[in-house]
Write a protein that binds this DNA or RNA. Sequence first.
DNA 1: GATGAATGAGGATTCATTCAT
DNA 2: CATGAATGAATCCTCATTCAT
Lengths: 234, 234, 234, 234
Amino acid sequence: MSFPKLFCETARGLPAKRERRKEARPGELLAAALELFVEKGFAATRADEVAKRAGVSKGTLFLYFSSKEELFKAVVRDNISGRYPGWAAEFEAFEGSTADMLRYAMNSWWTSVGATKASGISKLIMSEASNFPELAAFYQKEVIEPGHALIRRILQRGIDRGEIRPIDMTQAVHIIMAPLLYLVMCKHCYGTFADESARLVPEEFLATQVDTLLDGLSLRQADNVTPDRKAKPQ
Amino acid sequence: MSFPKLFCETARGLPAKRERRKEARPGELLAAALELFVEKGFAATRADEVAKRAGVSKGTLFLYFSSKEELFKAVVRDNISGRYPGWAAEFEAFEGSTADMLRYAMNSWWTSVGATKASGISKLIMSEASNFPELAAFYQKEVIEPGHALIRRILQRGIDRGEIRPIDMTQAVHIIMAPLLYLVMCKHCYGTFADESARLVPEEFLATQVDTLLDGLSLRQADNVTPDRKAKPQ
Amino acid sequence: MSFPKLFCETARGLPAKRERRKEARPGELLAAALELFVEKGFAATRADEVAKRAGVSKGTLFLYFSSKEELFKAVVRDNISGRYPGWAAEFEAFEGSTADMLRYAMNSWWTSVGATKASGISKLIMSEASNFPELAAFYQKEVIEPGHALIRRILQRGIDRGEIRPIDMTQAVHIIMAPLLYLVMCKHCYGTFADESARLVPEEFLATQVDTLLDGLSLRQADNVTPDRKAKPQ
Amino acid sequence: MSFPKLFCETARGLPAKRERRKEARPGELLAAALELFVEKGFAATRADEVAKRAGVSKGTLFLYFSSKEELFKAVVRDNISGRYPGWAAEFEAFEGSTADMLRYAMNSWWTSVGATKASGISKLIMSEASNFPELAAFYQKEVIEPGHALIRRILQRGIDRGEIRPIDMTQAVHIIMAPLLYLVMCKHCYGTFADESARLVPEEFLATQVDTLLDGLSLRQADNVTPDRKAKPQ
DNA sequence: GATGAATGAGGATTCATTCAT
DNA sequence: CATGAATGAATCCTCATTCAT
């Protein structure tokens, strides 16, 4: 049975479809499922669709994942990878001001998480947490807590350097988190919530957010002195 | 047969079957629907369940709301957008500083929406928007847009009074919205996302948030502006 | 209780709605039901609608007719009245040719049955016969059989007068019936089967039908002699 | 476990569950649907019933026909409009007289439609057209219009050959249609409308009908035209 | 008698899951 | 291993009928 198969593959230059990527199957299914779960939610994603997008039959999907729930869990686990060690190292070595560091951190997050499919996982978790408490706990431990720790480190460094006023750390972390989560939610509810006039440009939003976070919205005399603020009066 | 019924009614407070309470029904159904929608999501909430929780039969539900979607819309109106006129009036009459006004607005929102089950609606919409575009559009039009308008009014008043520096209004609105949505998401992923140490006390968070929003996190000496804070060496 | 009622009626000149036509109720319900049954069929006619069109509540409908089926039966029975004795007398006295008699009979039928709501009963019976065999039998006996007898009488007279060639009477009766039933069905499926170009003008159709019935479609030399034929070439 | 199954299959002819017979299904479902639609009408036929009669589960029905309406359309195509191309071809090639052609056409229709369950479709449409306008439109376009076109072709050929006198085509078509519809209605109100003495023998009725259609009922002497027959004394 | 609020059985359709091939 | 035909539980909504007022 293997001979004709090989013959097939070499003769045509293309492996027969069914054989082409036998080992890649789970990965392709996970990728297809991620996209669809993010797009439509867990309940609304049909097994049929996932299978089709992965280029296999519905039966095959259940060969690899015993149920839709198991598929969902696998998708989430598969996508919560640790990008944190790399960031931690970068932050350890960072030498600029806290303002720059926050800007850098947020842009970094946006570039490597927020703007990518990975942000879909956050959206997915938010949406389906109550149906998958076990996964939510997992996410909390693997993603949220380490993320908070990184933010805390940046803030603590700012306080130590005298750039940030002493503040309740827990609250400060949430204050930093809020706009990030907001961006994720905006991004993934896009299209359905289309209000052109209020559309968010993430990079600009993050920059403005950092400025505001550091200096506030209040008008002060000194404001006249700083022409580089991005305010576009009304 | 009449005796047990009487007994039943008086002793347990259970209504007899086929009781006619036309005026009370909508409210009871809306309350039941709110609970269930928030608990289980729109799609996963079965009409029978809503009816049962409201103490009526399935048919009765459809007597008052022509479809599940209409029921949802009614829930939204009953719990969120129905409050806007009142807020708008209050804001019109408000006489304090912008800082006070923001605090007041946020607390108001927290008390009457954020802290109640109604906040679940926002979470729900985030989760299911893509599956029910018509509901998403309704929410956008009935909740988001008027909500943004209210925020814009507060900010514009602050600018007019010289308390807020001129700023791009669209972004500013999002900056105000972010922590509110964040609270909602935290609240409704609660229990699953339980990190005791990082737990948020909403009222405090909102207060801190307003302070930060207005004055920033940066350390200043007696409100002197440190010029080099504004340099962007990057 | 009757005193205030009377007072009411006389004082206002209009009887209170509920009182106005207590005895007319069944008739009004039957009339409304006839219209709706003919329009939409038995199954698709909602009790609610019948009641509303009759100006009463749904409950009242069931006060007079114990079920929708009973209402239907009552409608049919109510509308199958004997117009036959009158026709039989007219035919007895008729003195013209058979051709004239057929024309007269068909026009008579069209005017007093086909063009009126009464034809709806025929349509109704046709449509629902299989669901109401008892009614169908009733209709057969009360309407179809006497109708056939009338037609048979006309034809027999024609044969006796030497105007009609001897023919199997049973078949001839059906040959006369067919266009009548056809008209009824066309009339009542009108609007749904709208093909403007093929629209039937009943009076013309009946006239042409009688001509054809008597003289046929075949081309004969004699045709050149008869300029009053209604043929509109192509 | 395999033994009883085999036994079952061979002994009773009952298929094992989950038998895969993709090619046979549509036909079995269409046959079951035709029977049930004719027996009970479109609205009253439940999808489960069709499936059960075809020996499959409800789900399978919807695997082959996306909705009950589509199932109905397929039944119509399978039983009526699907035959038109064949008829059209036959008529194109027909070489006999118009009388023979009409006889042939009517017998053809009777044999393959009128005498079969398919004729129930026409009765059904008459009954339910107003409730399912889309189906009525479909029937009009797919069955009635092409059917009329076929008849028109026969008549036009007769005129062109000088066998039929020129006549308004629209009316002529209806004159041909009437007895066909009449047969259908008689057939399907059968049993309920049983009047033994007046029972119709369709083949004879159609033959007589064609004769009458062509030559009329009038008595003629050696085919001489009696001039006073055409006077209209009224 | 009259009302109309309440009931709940009934039916089309979807889709995760199974299993014969 | 892979397939995809088959299954049937699940759910929204309708509407004839009931019955408390």
